[in-house]
């Protein structure tokens, strides 16, 4: 399978923060979740991909072309936090303005998206809710041919119903086989039902990259009275109280725990919480 996104040894130094030579790939046609805490390096990586920031060293290739090459951008759709449109523009004005820049612009599809997403073509951008603004940006992205959608915290600040609507629109974007999404978020529950792959970035380094299912099926949550000392080194992010302990553990190490110990499946969210807590403990 071809990789739509290839990141090679990317470095970027800021005062107090560094991307430390990160590398990862996203196969074409997949949806990849990009997770990590605020300040872990997600936005910096995405900004480099979008050509908004230059790396100190390393390279990003999008659809085989370096992201520093402006011709690569025609096939890249971007939704970072919020779209930038003139405050006084309506969806109609936005179409007039964007159409000349996009050779493959499909006005019929744009109208159809506005209708389906419940957006009024005559309403000014500044009078729209956050959810409407995000849906408007997606109406634009669905109306011209792109191959990669870069998302940076697109669901932040949205209520659950608006988030669900937006996630469904991302699924619609993915219908053609050659489309790929890189989806950065700290709301990991968004990824549970859409991501094929997960890249986990921690303090400017990639801690995990692989399929979502193998991430969630390699760990479990363990709760019990006292943790046997020989298991201590395998306990991730342990939380100890007078009533017992709770930790994350690699499934390979759960054999031999005393009876009465409870184990349950870990979600992506659990895995991050325990791993970050572990980091603080050390």
């Amino acid at each position: 399978m071809n990789n739509a996104i290839e990141v090679h040894d990317l470095c970027k130094l800021y005062p107090g923060f560094a991307l430390k030579s990160i590398s990862f790939t996203v196969p074409q046609g997949q949806c990849c979740g990009f997770i990590g805490r605020n300040g872990a390096g997600k936005s910096t990586t995405l900004r480099i991909m979008a050509g908004l920031t230059f790396p100190d060293s390393g390279e990003v290739r999008l659809l085989g072309k370096s992201c520093a090459d402006p011709s690569s951008r025609e096939e890249i759709a971007i939704l970072f936090d919020q779209p930038y449109f003139q405050e006084d523009w309506t969806p109609e004005d936005i179409e007039k303005c964007l159409r000349p820049f996009y050779p493959g612009w499909d006005g019929i599809r744009y109208r159809d998206c506005l209708n389906r997403f419940g957006l009024d073509a005559g309403k000014k951008f500044k009078n729209m809710s956050r959810g409407m603004k995000q849906k408007l940006a997606m109406a634009v992205h669905l109306s011209h041919p792109t191959k990669i959608l870069l998302l940076d915290e697109p669901t932040g600040g949205l209520d659950p119903a608006a988030r669900d609507e937006l996630l469904d629109i991302f699924r619609e974007y993915l219908l053609p086989e050659d489309r790929t999404i890189l989806f950065s978020t700290h709301i990991t529950s968004d990824l549970e039902r859409i991501a094929d792959k997960i890249v986990y970035i921690h303090n400017g380094e990639i801690t995990y990259q692989g399929s979502k299912d193998s991430l969630t099926s390699s760990y479990c949550i363990v709760r019990g009275a006292t943790l046997p000392p020989e298991k201590r080194e395998h306990a991730i992010g342990i939380r100890q109280t007078v009533n017992g302990y709770e930790c994350l553990m690699d499934l390979r190490h759960i054999g031999g725990l005393p009876s009465g110990t409870v184990t349950e499946n870990a979600s992506i969210n659990d895995i991050i919480v325990y791993m970050e807590r572990n980091d603080k403990n050390v």
Binding site: G29, C31, L174, R193, I194
Partner: peptide
């Protein structure tokens, strides 16, 4: 089908 069932494409 992945979209309709809300599961990942994989």
């Amino acid at each position: 089908l992945a979209r309709n069932l809300r599961v990942s494409i994989i």
